[in-house]
Design a protein around this nucleic acid. Sequence first.
DNA 1: ACATCAATAACTCAATTGAGTCATTTTACC
DNA 2: GGTAAAATGACTCAATTGAGTTATTGATGT
Lengths: 214, 214
Amino acid sequence: MTKQRILRVSIIEDHTDFRNGLVSVLSTSHQFVCVGEFGSVEKAMENFPECDVLLLDINLPGKSGTESIAALKNECPAMRIVMMTVFDDDENIFNALLAGADGYLLKKTPAPKILAAIEDAATGGTPMTPFVARRVIEHFKQSAPKQQSYELSEREKEILKELVNGLDNRMIAEKLFISYETVRNHVKHIYEKLHVSSRTQAVTKAISEHIVKS
Amino acid sequence: MTKQRILRVSIIEDHTDFRNGLVSVLSTSHQFVCVGEFGSVEKAMENFPECDVLLLDINLPGKSGTESIAALKNECPAMRIVMMTVFDDDENIFNALLAGADGYLLKKTPAPKILAAIEDAATGGTPMTPFVARRVIEHFKQSAPKQQSYELSEREKEILKELVNGLDNRMIAEKLFISYETVRNHVKHIYEKLHVSSRTQAVTKAISEHIVKS
DNA sequence: ACATCAATAACTCAATTGAGTCATTTTACC
DNA sequence: GGTAAAATGACTCAATTGAGTTATTGATGT
C-alpha cells in the first residue's frame, strides 16, 4: 500500500542504554536505517547527517531538546522531529509542539508503536500517544472558556481595554474625552473589582480571564 | 495486561452500510458489545442506552454530530465520544474537540485501529489519526502567533515573567536576590528590546506574543 | 589581548501611579 | 420620590516608575 521507502533515522539521546535499545529496535525492520546517534545536541550539530526522522530526547544535558528544535530544523529542514521523554506533563508537550516538533512519544511506548510513529511522522502525520493527545487537547481547550464576571461597568471595560493597550491615564483621558482625574477614578474602581493593586496585575487578569480580548 | 472490561459501544451514523460495517467490526472482538445503533441524533435521544463509548458521525441529517455532543454527554456523562467523518478539515476537528469530543477518526481508518481507538477513548486517551493530530497542532500553532525573537537574555525573560505576574520592582528584587536597582536596569533593557515604554505595554506584548506563558 | 555582551549595582530627576477623601450629575430601579 | 449605582471631576501625598548616566565583573568569541 504505502511505498516502502527506506527511512533514514537519527537519534539524539543521552541515555546510552535507551539509545542502543532504539538502534536495535530500528534494525529489526528493513524499512529503517539509523544514520546517526548522538548523546547531545552539541555533538550532533558537529556533523549532522541528512535524515528523514530525528528521535530527539527532550531532557538532554546542555541544550535541551525543545530548545534545539529550531536549530536542528535549520540544519535539515525536511526532517521530521519526534520528541521522546519520560516526562508527560503539559508544559513539555505544549512547548515542544509549539517549537516545531512533529510528534511526541513517551519513552514507555512499546517498540512496534515507536516504529509506527516514525513512519507516521515521515509521511506527514503527528504521532502522539492517545494520552499525550488528550493533554494537548485539554491544554488548549481550557484556554478558551471560563468567564468569571467581575461586574465591570461598560465604561470600566472600555478603560480596561485601553490599559491593556498600554495607554497611560492622560492618553486615555484624551481618547475618551474625559478628564485625567476621572480616568484615575475609573482605574481605581477597576482595581477594586478585579481585586488587584497595579496596572500590570489588572492587565494580566484582563487578558488571562478574557475580560478583554488580547 | 489491561483489564479486559467489556466496553459498551453505541453508534450514530446515517449511512446504513457504514454503520453495519462498524457493527460487524465490533463483533469480531469479544471485548466490545454494540448496545445501540441509530441513524440520527434525534432517534438516539428517544431512548439513549447507557454506554462507554459512542461513535458519532459528524455529518448527520438533522442535528449535526458536533452540535449534539453536549446533549449526548448530558444523557450519559461518563461516556466517551469518538467522532467519525470523511471530512478532515480544520474546522470540523477543532469544533468537535472544543465541543467535548474525546477522539476523532477519519472513516478510512482501518478496522483494527478503530477498535484500538475505542479502547483508548474508554481508558482516558484521545485517539486521533496522526494526520488529524497534525491538523490540530497546526491549528493552534498558527493561532499562537509568529514567534518573533526579541533576543531577551534568560535573566530578562525571568524578570519579564515577574512583570506579568504583577510584582513591582522591589518584590522582584527580593524574589531573585538581586538589588532593586538591578531590577530597574533589566526592566529598562526589556523595554528597549520589546520597543515599549511602560510596564503594561511590556506585559501585553509578553502575553500576546507568547514570550512568556500566561 | 581585545571587544562585546550579560548581569550586577548606584545615582539623579521628572513623570506617573496608587490610595484616600470628597463632590456633582445622571441613570436606573423600586 | 428616594435610593443606589455609575460617570464625572478635583485635591493631596507617598510610592513607584521611566529615562538617563556611569561603572564593575565575568563570560564569550575573535
